[in-house]
């Protein structure tokens, strides 16, 4: 991939007291790439995502997101990214449209734009009839997909997804990945963490994290080839043994 770099991380360190959550991470992500962040709970994935999205500042190191120094101008970074966390981030007691209006408003869209785009979005998802339903009464699978669509509603450069498919059934998971592909085709860079190994293979490149360090990084096919195994699961196990 020769396109421009949209995320550049050099020697990122994050400490919590004596605990090192991120230990000298360095990597780049290209525009439009689907970049997977893999690792067990506590490997440092969420910490890194929080730093990249301007929610937390690094102890040391350079973090450039969409050309902005994320540690110095987190507010600037927040404008050009979308974020969806582990548990869907929609308000259960608001309707679908009210949620969309809220997020659109937060990112400074006019009501006209919001109405226009939300109609377009809902009809693309095929759920126009859910527009005025409370999120609480929307089926679980749809909530996840809605949360993602809302996260990219303001057409950000990058969207960060922290375990978006945890505990979701296999069909809905794949539908979710369709949305990720669509977004990627539209030029949005997708930064995603997952526990499912088959999902790792849907990524253009993956980065395997363990104990705060990058253990392996690269295209899934190449990783499998270089470790001489047939599945990402085995890559994972080999990486852990080497660590």
């Amino acid at each position: 991939m020769e396109s421009e770099t949209i995320i550049e991380v050099r020697d990122l360190v994050k400490r919590f007291g004596s605990f090192i959550a991120n230990d000298h991470l360095s990597f780049t992500v290209a525009k439009g790439e689907i970049f997977g962040f893999l690792g067990a709970n506590g490997a440092g994935k969420t910490t890194a995502i929080r730093i990249l999205s301007g929610l937390s500042s690094p102890t040391s190191g350079y973090v450039f997101v969409a050309g902005i120094d994320a540690s110095r101008y987190p507010e600037q970074v927040k404008k050009s990214i979308g974020y969806m966390c582990q548990r869907f981030s929609l308000y259960e007691d608001l309707t679908v449209f009210e949620n969309i209006r809220l997020y659109g408003g937060v990112y400074g869209l006019t009501l006209k734009e919001i109405v226009l785009r939300s109609d377009e979005m809902l009809s693309r998802l095929g759920i126009t009839d859910l527009r005025d339903r409370l999120i609480r009464s929307v089926p679980l699978g749809w909530r996840q997909k809605l949360a993602f669509s809302v996260a990219i509603f303001h057409q950000p450069n990058i969207v960060f997804l922290d375990e978006p498919t945890g505990g979701v059934d296999p069909v809905t998971r794949r539908q979710f990945w369709d949305l990720i592909y669509e977004a990627s085709r539209a030029g949005i860079t997708v930064f995603v963490t997952t526990h499912y190994m088959d999902e790792a293979e849907y990524c253009d490149r993956v980065c395997i994290l363990s104990e705060g360090k990058i253990q392996a990084i690269g295209n899934p096919v190449e990783l499998k080839r270089s470790f001489n195994v047939t599945s990402m699961d085995e890559v994972f196990i080999k990486v852990a043994r080497n660590a």
């Binding site: 067990a40 709970n41 490997a43 945890g166 505990g167 363990s210 699961d233 994972f236 196990i237 852990a240």
Partner: peptide, 10 residues
């Protein structure tokens, strides 16, 4: 095994 690394799961 939810949220546990691949080696521990195995």
């Amino acid at each position: 095994t939810t949220g546990v690394d691949a080696v521990s799961r195995k």
